[in-house]
Design a protein around this nucleic acid. Sequence first.
DNA 1: GGTGTTTGCTAACGGTGTTCACTAAAGCGT
DNA 2: ACGCTTTAGTGAACACCGTTAGCAAACACC
Lengths: 253, 253
Amino acid sequence: MTKPQVARGRAEQSTLSRRERVREATLAEIKAIARRHLVEHGPSGVSLRAIAREMGMTAPGLYRYVSGIDALLIAITADMFDELADAVAAADASVPDEDTDRRILTSLRAFRSWAIDHRSEFAVMFGPRARLDPNADITPGLEAARRFAATFYTLFDRLLVERRFTLPDSGHVTPELDRELRSFAESCGFSAPHIPVEAVMVLTSCWVRLYGVVCMEVFDHMSIVMSDLEPLFESELHTVLADLGVRYEPPGG
Amino acid sequence: MTKPQVARGRAEQSTLSRRERVREATLAEIKAIARRHLVEHGPSGVSLRAIAREMGMTAPGLYRYVSGIDALLIAITADMFDELADAVAAADASVPDEDTDRRILTSLRAFRSWAIDHRSEFAVMFGPRARLDPNADITPGLEAARRFAATFYTLFDRLLVERRFTLPDSGHVTPELDRELRSFAESCGFSAPHIPVEAVMVLTSCWVRLYGVVCMEVFDHMSIVMSDLEPLFESELHTVLADLGVRYEPPGG
DNA sequence: GGTGTTTGCTAACGGTGTTCACTAAAGCGT
DNA sequence: ACGCTTTAGTGAACACCGTTAGCAAACACC
């Protein structure tokens, strides 16, 4: 009488006991409501009591599913990184595999679009950890964050093998920077041994530029001084891609 | 019998009644304690009740000085911008007036130094407005923020009149970007009529780059992947200044 | 000294996270 | 079908939080 369950998501056993299924469902409901409260009332508007109230139960009951408000926030942060990673990967997959240029362009635009369509989420993911202890265990989010970054790693790797741009003078890389860049390349997995540190520096530099524009836009500084930051993002995108030897096209088509 | 008061800070009457003086003092104490709680326990650790407790009074008493927790946060944010502006201006003033290159270098390094020495403050100032209503009145902070930016405006203006760098091709500036840049130049006061929009774009682009690195560092992303972001900041500073035709020197001397 | 303003208090309301003891139900083995 | 074990959820309680209302003491001023 046990109906076979379709596998949903990554790494999930297909056979779950009824209990595990309903448990999974209520946990999903908790996270969904928390997520909605986050976008509707900001990060401080997420409360266990409010979630429980909306679910028709009491706050202590939620402790059967989540070990506290911090863990809940960390969990939905991981989900959001997963979602962002999916959005970017989907954008990347929507253009022909060989067209590296447009794949990069589309993926980066997808990143910004997702960010401005999910400002509250972005603030939690990429802003300061305001509500959590500094020493909280955020490992669940890191895995998803890596998956998000992986898309750009592989695209950047293609630029390298195609020798699209000339690496900067290695004299610019101080010993300290060299050490940090190697640490970065090593711990992000994509450090195929052939990748020079200058390339890692270029990647980091480009990422910093686009991250900066998006942060400015989402965190809503400049809003008094500039009404729309999309033209600025496109301008930065243009010059960044030019430095990388990637063809730019205006967003219209 | 009224002792003459020395004028402290900007725009403060020298003669204050005794009552006004003690009132000013307790308000300063409130803000000082709030500030300390901010750096010690994060943004969510600032509470009126805790401040009152530490001052030996009760929370409702604070409402004689501050209209609520939001107004208090806005007030200390304004103070922090003032402090940052002072720090940057002091750094700028610490080098000979004619040495534009080193003035820029020193001012920008002072910005980063202040940021990493005051991470919690920076998060409140430049991060997402997590705890405030989106429609809160933050005008007190804007004035101080302008004063902070002014230092860089004047330095950048000197680069322009000295023609240190060639302006980018105006073909890169789309009509939409042109509109935003003019809006920016106009509302930041520094739009002397002779300043071309291409120059405003260069300024914005440079600012975005350095803002991005500092945000990354203060918000503590990358911490798993890079232990120290100063080399990266210096690298960005190097290339940014190179684009501006400004002489770079390593931080040591 | 009388008067009006300013200051700070207590009490109270409603909100939050979290723990603990407890009940009721669901699942499972026999 | 029965009993036992595991689990889900509740209610009360504690310690916080922001904020308002009403009231008493201290102060400034005439």
